[in-house]
Computed example of a mutant assay.
Amino acid sequence: MATRLRPANKKCTVIGGCGFLGQYMVERLLDKGYTVNVFDIRQGFQDERVQFFIGDLCSKKDLLPALQGVNVVFHCASPDPFSDNKELFYRVNYTGTRTVIESCKEAGVQKFVLTSSASVIFEGKDIKNGSEDFPYAKHPMDYYTESKILQEKEVLSTNDPENNFLTVAIRPHGIFGPRDPRLVYVLVETAKSGKMKCMIGNGKNLVDFTYVENVVHGHILAAEHLHKDSPLCGKAYHITNDEPIPFWTFLSRILIGLNYEEPKYHIPYWLAYYLALFVSLLVFIISPFIKINPTFTPMKVALAGTYHYYSCEKAKKDMGYKPVVSLDQALERTIQSHSHLRKNS
């Protein structure tokens, strides 16, 4: 198996390093003795140990200064997955990533670790213990997934050991944890508005939720095991907590932990899905006149009502991955970190 990076090669750049995942990545890399550059569209935090580069990842001129003397690039920048901006997804996730790859090659970067997504093989049908051998979704359910498929294909196809440019893609699923700007806040706001009384389906569908520190651990392991003779070259790897849990049980544990009521009633999955399709059709019909970004979409219904959990066996075998934080610990930390949102009894 690969040896760890020598100290002389422990200079890296985190693209999207001011985001939720990116900031955790930066902190862990610093803990492990890396010299860290951060490239992002804006500076989201202060750290005197980090050199920040602000710019547009679609601009080679902006990127190149952040890549000088760098051995490893972690690319975890992406628009909000729940946005409906097709043009933005393609510009950032596809054409932007092509520019990042070209810039890395020009700067002499040797290793490229992409934050992909397990959704690249999901098209609204049950996935149980899905492996990396599953084909890409032929009918992706949203623009985010479409663009991530194109992005991952581009990154993996540019793996080129002969020219010392090695690539790997990490596919996390359901990232959560303290400082998450979305999940818990949306849950609490939905509960406050009285819209969290019903669950979609029978509530038994198992799903992967992955603690952010485990996702970071998977990325760094991938970088440290990526070398010319490594099985990681040009491959994708699922990284999860390896503890699938019923979707509605996970949400309920957060709600109960913050003194809100869990969902008690059931809406049949088929009914919710067709209602979401109907809403999507209406939005499409009126879109020339009124712009609406619906919160009730077929993709969200599918995520809430189907099985979608993934095997980490390949990551265990090829890079010695195992979660560093259990799901129980992760939930406890996440709930405690959002104690300011707790409902007064």
Rank of each mutant, 00 (worst) to 15 (best):
Y265A: 05
K86Q: 09
K314F: 11
S287Y: 00
P79A: 13
P81D: 02
P161G: 01
V188T: 06
I285L: 07
I200S: 00
L341K: 09
Y309S: 04
G177V: 03
H173Y: 15
I41S: 14
G69C: 14
L327M: 14
S117C: 05
Q110Y: 06
V100L: 05
S59I: 03
N205P: 01
I292L: 15
Y24S: 02
C233N: 10
N344A: 02
K60A: 13
Y310V: 14
S131C: 06
R49M: 10
V73H: 04
M199K: 02
V109Q: 10
E146K: 09
P246T: 02
R6H: 06
P7I: 00
V70Y: 12
L275Q: 04
W270V: 09
Q329I: 14
L275C: 06
M1D: 13
Q23V: 06
S326F: 13
C18P: 10
V100T: 10
Q46N: 12
N71F: 07
L331K: 08
N241P: 03
F52S: 00
F165V: 06
L206A: 08
V100E: 04
S287P: 01
N163P: 02
T3F: 09
S103F: 15
G44H: 11
E313A: 10
L232W: 06
C12H: 00
G19Y: 07
D80F: 14
V215C: 10
V155L: 06
R253T: 06
E152H: 04
V212G: 09
M196L: 04
C18G: 14
G124Q: 13
T249S: 13
R49H: 06
T167H: 01
Q329H: 12
K10R: 11
N37A: 08
F53M: 08
T295Q: 12
R171V: 12
Q151S: 15
S287G: 01
R179I: 03
H173A: 13
P7M: 01
Y265K: 09
V109S: 08
T190A: 00
R91H: 05
D180P: 05
S326Q: 08
Y307S: 05
E224C: 09
T13W: 12
N71I: 11
S117L: 05
G257N: 05
G124P: 09
A315I: 08
H139K: 13
G96K: 08
Y260N: 00
R28K: 04
R179L: 11
I175M: 06
A66D: 07
G108P: 04
L57E: 15
S103P: 13
G174S: 15
